[in-house]
Amino acid sequence: MLRSAQDVQPVLRWMQTELGADKVTCHKAVKLSGGAIQENWRLELQITGGRYDGEQLWVLRTDAPSAVAVSSSRVQEFTLLQAVCGQDVPVPQPICVCTDSSVLGRPFFLMTAVSGQAQGRKLVRDPKLKTTGPGLVAQLGEIMARIHKITPQDEHAQRYELSGLPGYNDSAAVFQIAQMRTALDQLGSAHPVLEYGLNWLEDNLSEWEGTGETVLCHRDFRTGNFLVEDGLCTALLDWEFAGWSDRHEDIGWLCARCWRFGNTHLAVGGLGPFSAFRQAYERISGQLLNVTAIGFWQVMAEIRWAVIALQQAARNRSGQEMSLELALSGYLVPEMEVNMLTLIDEITTGNWQDLDS
């Protein structure tokens, strides 16, 4: 387990063998901010000999001391990065993965560090956003469309054995409702507002289930999980929730009000208008979007983030991982409940106009 820069020595010895290097030196190891579910360390390396000879700036990614059950393993996430890397999807280049628990105590992988800003509150307050926003969300639409071109039957998916990723038998909507109900039951506390939202979604399944083929979804594609530099996305991060789903789930998550960081008038992550995103997405994917279905997936997004926030608070209370960030997550739930109830009211009364821009 990494607790300080000194703990990286076993990793360097493993890297030397794995990469065929004569020597691997770490000049600096810094734990990166964020990463409530996974842990990331930025390593400034000097590698002598082998394929990666020279100075390297890499990120070591491993599990946090406690984790969310639906999160993929580091091996699965590494494989995903390999799979999408060649599909014109901007991601950090995956370097190598270690499953030997004697090295660090748990699996980890190494990937290239990518420049850019990821903090949502800074991105939505960029003075240049009025100019760069439409182009940025159009690029996000193109990136998401390329991911969604990968299907379970796709040769690319079979080559990287992606069939083992989380998926569903009936419909993505039914599967997600069941997942959220199970997660709430496991928390051991009552959350009637979230249960009401799930009941409403179930009562209206005919409006949003079965709206498209099964595709590879990132399932955490949102402001805060991609890097932006000079108005362009340089890398899409945090693939631990990826799985097979309905394409509209990813879009509803990106456009959820909880991920706009105060820029409520800009539907796509608080960064730009939905029209720019939609045009780019449909052009690359060749698929027309069901905008009505996206509204229901927005409701699900508020519920899902509320459940994750409750799970994070529970991790702190368990004593497995004491963290102020995790502890405060539970206090975000009322905000998601208000967003959810407001969306339900707008959709029910015909006043939902979130994606009209």
Rank of each mutant, 00 (worst) to 15 (best):
L328T: 13
V193N: 08
P134T: 04
L136M: 11
G270T: 09
T342R: 13
L45C: 02
A178P: 00
S71E: 14
T48P: 04
I95F: 03
R13Y: 12
C98W: 04
E18T: 14
E209R: 08
L110F: 00
D230Q: 15
L236A: 11
D22G: 10
Q353F: 10
G269L: 06
E155A: 14
I284Q: 14
D22K: 15
L187R: 00
A183K: 13
D53Q: 09
A157K: 01
P334N: 07
H148E: 05
R42C: 02
E142H: 02
Q76P: 06
A267S: 15
I344D: 01
N204M: 01
H218M: 04
P94F: 03
R247P: 12
A327R: 15
I177E: 08
L184G: 08
D354H: 15
T342L: 13
L57P: 00
A280S: 14
R121D: 15
L194I: 07
A157N: 00
G319W: 03
E44W: 02
D100F: 08
L140R: 05
M180A: 14
C85W: 14
M1H: 13
N339F: 12
E335M: 15
R13P: 07
D345F: 10
R121V: 11
T211G: 07
P107F: 05
M322P: 03
V97I: 08
V307E: 11
W352G: 01
L32H: 02
L254A: 13
R283P: 01
Y168K: 03
E207R: 13
W244S: 11
C26W: 00
V91C: 06
A29E: 03
A145R: 10
D7F: 04
V89M: 03
G319S: 08
E18A: 15
A5M: 02
A293V: 04
Q139M: 02
L201K: 05
G135N: 03
W58M: 00
W253M: 10
L32R: 00
N204K: 07
V70H: 13
G34F: 01
A314V: 05
